[in-house]
Amino acid sequence: MKHVRITLGGTALVVAATLVLAGCGDDSDSGTMPGMNHATTPTAAPSSAAGEFNDADVTFATQMIPHHQQAVQMSDMAIRKATTADVKRLATAIKAAQNPEVKLLSGWLTTWGKPVPAPEHGGHGMSEMPGMMTEDEMSDLGNSSGAMFDRMWTQLMIKHHTGAVTMAKTEQQAGRDTAAVALAKKVETDQTKEIATMKRLLGQLPVS
């Protein structure tokens, strides 16, 4: 079994700071929708992927990177095109939370001596990941506008988040690296809250 040892130096502090910025806050802050505050509460995830890891850890990191990247791509669409302020705010929160996690996961793969996925939003194996949008779905989303875009984006992001939660639960059951398992728990917690927020939001959005 391969062991990975990381000293508690500047790198760990930088990663810890990154995770703090990406942490999910509670729902008590005024002026924000429940489940949308990601910037106030530190995460419980350890600051580095130290100790033993297994194939499940590698699979989790390798698949979650493109999964998060697609969520960021979808969020960028909403930031540009959404007509509902709550959709824009949620998209901004998702992007702010998931970009740092992509960097964290990429760093772990490098530390483990594993390849980091290329920054692509599709390709071989993408359809095997729970919740990933197909090329047709991404195209349809990009071609929609107005209230139709807001509803479609929210529906597709619920599906996307549900897939991420499934992947996170698998990592918690099968993973060995304590930091990776803790991050999976954070992903499950954060995105479960956002799913609830989006379901409430979907009921408030105009149909057309």
Rank of each mutant, 00 (worst) to 15 (best):
P42V: 07
T43Y: 04
A44Y: 10
A45K: 00
P46E: 12
S48A: 08
S48N: 00
G51A: 14
E52H: 15
E52I: 13
E52L: 12
N54L: 09
A56C: 08
A56G: 15
A61D: 03
A61M: 14
T62I: 02
Q63P: 01
Q63D: 14
Q63H: 14
M64A: 07
M64W: 11
I65S: 15
I65L: 15
I65V: 09
P66F: 09
P66V: 14
H68Q: 02
Q70T: 14
A71I: 01
V72H: 07
V72S: 11
V72F: 08
V72N: 04
Q73L: 11
Q73D: 10
M74V: 00
M74P: 05
S75K: 04
S75N: 00
M77Q: 01
M77L: 06
A78T: 06
A78L: 09
I79A: 10
I79H: 04
I79T: 02
R80W: 00
R80E: 07
R80Q: 07
T83I: 05
T83G: 11
T84R: 13
T84D: 11
A85L: 09
D86Q: 14
K88N: 03
K88Y: 03
K88L: 05
R89W: 01
R89M: 10
A91V: 03
T92G: 13
K95Y: 06
A97D: 02
A97S: 01
Q98T: 03
N99Y: 03
P100A: 08
E101R: 02
E101W: 12
E101H: 04
V102W: 04
V102F: 14
V102I: 14
L105A: 15
S106D: 01
S106F: 00
T111K: 07
T111L: 15
T111E: 15
W112N: 00
K114L: 07
K114M: 04
P115K: 07
P115N: 05
P115Q: 03
P115Y: 08
P117D: 08
P117N: 08
A118I: 12
A118C: 10
E120H: 12
G122V: 14
G122L: 14
H124R: 12
S127R: 15
P130C: 15
P130H: 06
G131M: 10
M133L: 14
M133S: 05
E137V: 12
S139A: 15
S139I: 13
D140F: 05
D140E: 04
G142K: 09
G142A: 11
N143R: 07
S144W: 02
G146K: 03
A147D: 11
A147P: 00
M148L: 14
M148T: 02
D150S: 03
R151H: 09
Q155V: 03
L156T: 00
M157N: 05
M157Y: 01
I158V: 05
H160E: 08
H160I: 08
H160Y: 07
G163W: 04
A164R: 05
M167R: 05
A168C: 08
A168E: 02
T170E: 15
T170H: 08
Q172Y: 00
Q173L: 10
Q173P: 01
A174N: 02
A174M: 06
A174P: 00
R176Q: 06
D177C: 14
T178E: 10
A179R: 13
A179W: 04
A180C: 13
V181S: 13
V181F: 13
A182W: 04
A184P: 02
A184E: 03
K185W: 05
